[in-house]
Each structure stands twice: as C-alpha cells, then as structure tokens.
Design a protein around this nucleic acid. Structure first.
Lengths: 117, 117
DNA sequence: TCTTCATTTAGCAAATGTGCTAATTGTTGA
DNA sequence: TCAACAATTAGCACATTTGCTAAATGAAGA
C-alpha cells in the first residue's frame, strides 16, 4: 500500500472513531484525567454495559487514538493526543490553509481525498 | 432544549457527517473549487450514483456544513468552512487547550461531552 | 404547453454499527 | 491451587447507513 493510501485509511479510521458520542466522551474523560485511565474507571462513568465500553475502547485503539498498557490486573488506556491532532486536525487544516496556498489542482485534491465515492 | 445540549447535537451531526469518506471528499472538492459548486459537477466526480451523492449532500446540509441555493435549474452547494472549523475544530481544541487551562473538573468535562454512553 | 434537463425523493436490499448477556482470559493473593 | 477480580471476546438482536433503480419535481426553452 502506498503512503498516500495508508494516510487515507488513517483519516478514515480516526473520523469513524470520532463519529460516536460515547467515543468522543471517552477521549474527553481521558484528557481531563491526565491522559491515563484504567478501563474500569472509564466504564464506571458510562451508563452502557462494560463490554460495550470495552468495544468502544477497541475502536479508539484501532484508530491509534489511544494505546493500552497492562498494569497488574488492570488495563490502562493512554490518550494519544498527538495522533488526534495530526490526523483530524491535519485534515481540517486543508480548509484553513486554502486561502494562503494553491491547492486548486485536482492532483493536490486527490492526494488527501481520493478513493472515496 | 438548552444551549449546551444543542451544541452537543451540532457536534454529533458534524462528526457523523465527516465519518464517511465520500462526504469528506465532497467537502475537499467544494473547497478546491472556491466553495461554490453545482450538484451535477460534484456528482460527476464520483463513481457512485447521482442519487447516492445527492443523499450525501443532504447529510452535509443537515449538519450545516454546506448550504444550497437554486440557480436556474441547478442547485449550487456552498461550503460553510466557518461551521466546519467552529464545530469540529472547536471540539479538537479541548485537547490542545488542556495544557494551558484547567478543565479537570467533571462539570467542565460534561459540558462538552455529556449525554453519551 | 410540451419536452428536456438537473436534481431530488421513494423504496428496497445488503452491509455496518451498537447494545446486551453469557462465557472466557489472565492476574492477584490466600 | 483456588477464589476473586478486571476486562475482553463471543454471539445474537435491533437500528442505522449506504448503495442501487425507478419515479417525481420543478425550471427553461421550443
């Protein structure tokens, strides 16, 4: 897979992960608690069942927005703010940057948005 | 509905709209073409059927990321970059801002992420 | 007015996502 | 080794999303 296609997959995974309110909530909670929280502490804050929260965590993990570390019998989830800002923020920057630099050509456009539709 | 809950609905609509690659692509195309493009010109760039693209446009419309104007027998879609940056960018800012301001309390956290899970 | 063009709406099938309960894995401490 | 604990994986039901084709809408020009 080329670098450009891999980037598109990353963008897709991140925005898909951000599409659900529970997962956005998990990231906010993680951030507010200093970026490191056990799965149990996260699950305790939600009204849905523990397995459901666990699956949301896995989606975030697959998108690279968190990583996980075993600590005794707990799993500690660690927020990856850098990736959130790089991937989601990076995509959003195409819109701010537009006034300054020339990204009018199709080539440039395809580089960040191809393989859809 | 309170102001805070309305904001949560806006965040939800915007991130749900951004969750599909075709819709992200539409926004990029719109941006590259100066922010104003007819539905036909957009549909012509996609491999999926015209009605399918039309529905993607409606999702973007409902999220407030575009508006639409009738011009003769064409529909012109107009990008709303301001809303994209305000809602999606605004949500992302909770993570950058974290190092500077204190948002540790649960009250603050709930204000931007409640009603999930 | 009638046809043509541009696009949307309707309606259906297939795929995907979400939530639950029950069962499993792996760790700790007696 | 065994019980208790922390969390995940498995498997199922329900809801939503996505894509298609066919039909409808509404403006423009002959």
């Amino acid at each position: 897979m080329t670098r450009a296609l891999q980037e598109l997959d990353e963008i897709d995974a991140v925005f898909s992960a951000l599409a659900h309110a529970s997962r956005r909530h998990i990231l906010i909670v993680l951030n507010a608690r200093g970026g490191r929280v056990s799965a149990g502490a996260i699950a305790a804050r939600f009204s849905c069942s523990w397995p459901t929260t666990s699956r949301h965590l896995r989606v975030l993990l697959d998108a690279g927005l968190v990583r996980v570390e075993r600590q005794g019998r707990e799993w500690i989830y660690v927020l990856n703010v850098g990736r959130l800002n790089a991937v989601a923020g990076g995509w959003l920057n195409w819109f701010e940057a537009k006034e300054k630099t020339n990204v009018e050509t199709d080539g440039g456009v395809r580089a960040v948005s191809a393989a859809s539709g």
